[in-house]
Design a protein around this nucleic acid. Structure first.
Length: 276
DNA sequence: ATGGTCGGCAACCGA
């Protein structure tokens, strides 16, 4: 062991990906593993009931520890890990909907257990008005509940990842001006997300590496004729870490190439490596 | 300004 590395410490690579059907895109997971080699991979939009989760295929990639929380057709999250993970049973059923948008675990990390939360926040529909659009209300209610939850238990040795479906910064979207009325970048959503982040004392791990005045996207619409040429992206996927882990942030990857894979998801994988 | 494309699952809903 190098002299500058304390006993019991090490690095951990955490990745997050909205896979948009884990069964359809199972073959792409091996590309992800080759590119990022994550210790822990958090998935959203698995769209897969637990009894049909492709455990065998995922195990073949080295993820010996797996937890899935899915349902038929919609939503669904999973945590795949090369290190032991322990399901947290004390976290809320968000908005009491039982809709499979969160998994919380303790990861057996070098240096001691790390609390990890994988979120899939409601997209919120098309109209940014909770009176006219209940899905937007659900999104705001979900974030408000998560804010109160974070405020009640300041984060320590904790990581929060997922598809939060909100792009908070001006340069998290291709055109701040043109997206001010578009769900994902409206001021009410941005304020809500910033309030959540502040309530938990969370550090934005991607913006730790990429300055706020540089464009950074993790999602490109399927509807663009040429997603790469038009480059009308948004940063909807996030990695937040508690203050005590922020000093250990070592590396990040936004795997933009994944948007060009055959049968791509509209989101790309994001990975953060940190000392634990 | 509008519509553009996906996935699940079998007619549209959700993104």
């Amino acid at each position: 062991m190098p002299a500058n590395v304390a006993a019991g410490s090490g690095t951990l690579r955490i990745a997050t990906w909205n896979i948009n059907s884990v069964r359809l895109r199972l073959p792409l997971l091996s590309d992800l593993v080759m590119q990022l080699d994550p210790d822990v991979l958090c998935l959203q939009e698995t769209k897969c009931p637990d009894e049909h989760f492709p455990h065998e295929g995922v195990a073949a990639l080295g993820f010996t520890h797996r937890l899935a929380r899915g349902m038929k057709g919609y939503n669904g999250v999973a945590i795949l890990s090369k290190r032991p993970i322990l399901l947290r049973t004390e976290d809320p059923d968000w908005c009491l909907k039982g809709d499979c948008r969160h998994l919380g675990v303790a990861v057996d990390a070098p240096g001691g257990p790390i609390e990890l939360h994988n979120f899939y926040i409601p997209a919120g529909g098309d109209i940014p008005d909770r009176e006219k659009n209940p899905k937007f209300g659900h999104k705001l209610d979900f974030v408000a509940e998560a804010t109160a939850w974070s405020a009640a238990r300041p984060a320590k040795r904790s990581i929060m990842v997922g598809d939060l479906n909100i792009a908070p910064l001006e340069h998290d979207v291709w055109s701040h001006r043109q997206l001010l009325d578009v769900v994902s970048h409206t001021p009410i959503e941005v304020d809500a997300l910033n309030g959540w982040q502040k309530a938990g004392g969370w550090h934005d791990a991607l913006r730790h590496f990429v300055p706020a005045d540089q464009k950074l996207y993790t999602w490109w619409s399927y509807r663009a004729a040429d997603w790469r040429a038009s480059d009308r992206g948004r940063r909807l996927d996030h990695v937040w870490v508690s203050p005590d882990l922020a000093g250990g942030l070592a590396r990040h990857v936004v795997l933009k190439d994944a948007r060009g894979w055959v049968k791509a998801s509209d989101h790309v994988p994001v990975m953060v490596e940190l000392a634990t």
